[in-house]
């Protein structure tokens, strides 16, 4: 059980790492949204799933309720993260930011 929790937690941390580095490395605002919107969602999802499993080890009613609440957070992140990404991209389009294309200097 501990091994499964560790695998889930570390894969979540891996995706969160990729998200942070992607935000630093990508050349412009639109392409930075790709790691911010996707990698952070999956990283949060996997890490929280692992922690919910760990919480269920000493089974009791309180632990079950806490794990269900963590699942609620996962569902919320799963729905809210694409919406937040879309809100940011919409603000960028309305402000008139042009997407970066190949060959330009990075911003």
């Amino acid at each position: 059980m501990d091994i499964l929790v560790c695998i889930l937690l570390f894969s979540g941390l891996f995706f969160l790492t990729a998200g942070s580095i992607g935000i630093l490395r990508f050349p412009d605002f639109y392409s930075r949204l790709h790691p911010a919107g996707k990698l952070d969602t999956l990283g949060t999802l996997l890490a929280l799933l692992g922690l919910a499993l760990f919480n269920l080890q000493h089974f009791s009613l309180g632990a079950l309720l806490t794990s269900l609440k963590i699942m609620l957070i996962i569902i919320f992140v799963f729905v809210a993260s694409p919406t937040a990404t879309h809100a940011i991209v919409d603000a960028g389009v309305r402000a008139g930011l042009a997407p970066w294309t190949k060959g330009e200097k990075r911003r």
Binding site: P35, L39, T41
Partner: peptide, 12 residues
């Protein structure tokens, strides 16, 4: 979602 994330992580 998994496939997408592996692809973006590979790019990163």
């Amino acid at each position: 979602l998994f496939k997408a994330n592996l692809h973006v992580a590979y790019l990163v």
